[in-house]
Structure formats: C-alpha cells, structure tokens
Design a protein around this nucleic acid. Structure first.
Lengths: 122, 122
DNA sequence: CTGTATCCGAACCGATACTG
DNA sequence: CAGTATCGGTTCGGATACAG
C-alpha cells in the first residue's frame, strides 16, 4: 500500500500523487457527486428527469454525464421510443467509489466540527 | 457510519453530501495536495523555498497556503529575523487526511488500469 | 425529449512588478 | 524575504434558444 506521506517515497510518491490527481479529476465538476448519488440511490433516470431533479441546465448536465460515462461510472441507453428517450444508470463499477466517498464523508464531518471548535476558541 | 449510496437515507444523505463537498472544497486548488505532500514529507519550509520547489507563482502560493492554514492543515510561523522569514509546516491534524488520500490513491490507481483496459477493448 | 450552439459573467491561474 | 496589486488568458458554469 503506497503511502503518500512517507518520507522514503521517490517514484512511488509520484505515482501516488498522480493517482490522487486522477481521482480528483474524475470527481471534479459541480454536479458529479450529486448526479452519481441520485443515480445510485434512485436508479435509472432519463435526461429530463435529471434536469428537473438536480436543477441543472441541460448544457452542463450533458457535459457532466458524458464525463461520468467516459469514466465508466454511468451508462447511457437510448430507448427506441418516439420521440427518443435516454436512460442513464450508475454502473456496478461506480460502487467502487464508495471507499473514497466514505472516507470523504468521515473526514468532512469531523473537519466541520474541528473548524467550528477552532473558531469558538478565538 | 453514513452510507451515501444507501437508498434509505434522507437527512443523513444530505449531511453526507455536504461532508463530501466540504472535503472536496478543502482539497480543491491546483497545488494544495502537492504542497501538503512537500510539507509533510520534507518538514518545515520557508515561503521562498516553496516557490522554488513547487514552482508556483507567489500569488497562488500565498492564496493556497492561507486556505490550508484556515483549514488547520498548515501553520504559519513568523520568525524574528532580519529581514523577516516565515516558516510553514504541516500540522499533526493534517495527517488525518491520510485516510482520504489513501483511498484516493488506491481508487485512482485501479481506475487508471480500468480505463486503460476499457480502451483496449474498443 | 435529448441534446447542442451561443453568449455571458465569474472564478481560476500565471507572470510580472512592486511594497514593506 | 514575504507577500500583494495588477493585468491577461483560460476554464467553468448558467441562461436561453434552437435542432433533430
């Protein structure tokens, strides 16, 4: 297991840094986490449903969904209806992000308390 | 332990989402992770040393360091030399980020393989 | 219904010069 | 030496109109 914080890392350290940047890059974007959350929790959604439920403009929604799809986190299925509809779903692979999300939830929660406590002492 | 991906979350889910956003916000910025890594691995550094080692313009460095300090991840110590020097160090608290960073390293590493494999099959 | 094109303002980052 | 002021380029996100 690579430790980004160890003093003895050389090439491992660079790889670790790159991996962190990769992760941040994938998750980067104002709506990605929220969209993933919706799709994982509520299951398949159509484009228009996402526009309404997440209150995102279609342009941004399209962009974020494409990026999520490129990263194998959501699938896009065109349904042969009339007019055409499109269904977006979270992939099973997207659940692998859980480990990261859990860590962020735990740290973020404690951090908020930490900052609040520090603010109280000033 | 809050699970962002569970279907039964209501208020917990919002809290979890907010915690994730908090974490992303703290780590957000082109250089924060790199700076933290330098300070944790190599110990205390002066402002000018960071400018050279990380190759950041002073304006951005100053901004990122202030944000890290606000989040209790680095300390700023003014030394009574002539001219004045300033030492930046990672706080013990910053090591609490390890859990998150480790998760991102692991996921980012596997994800790169995953995407490469998917690209090979097309 | 699903997107894209266009336009806009805001945020971000970098280079450089400058102040204390 | 440490940090800020100023300017400029690039990216980002939102609103709206429109095409397929």
């Amino acid at each position: 297991m690579v430790n980004l914080l160890q003093a003895d890392c050389k090439t491992d350290c660079k790889k670790a840094q790159a991996a962190v940047q990769d992760t941040l890059y994938v998750v980067n974007g104002k709506w990605k986490m929220g969209l993933l959350s919706i799709l994982i929790n509520s299951g398949t959604k159509r484009f228009g449903e996402l526009v309404r439920e997440a209150e995102i403009s279609p342009r941004i929604l399209s962009k974020e969904l494409q990026e999520l799809e490129m990263n194998l986190l959501v699938t896009r299925k065109v349904c042969d209806t009339k007019p055409v509809t499109v269904e977006y779903s979270a992939t099973p692979y997207s659940k692998s992000l859980m480990e990261v999300i859990d860590a962020m939830v735990r740290w973020g929660t404690r951090h908020r308390e930490m900052v609040a406590a520090a603010a109280a002492n000033s």
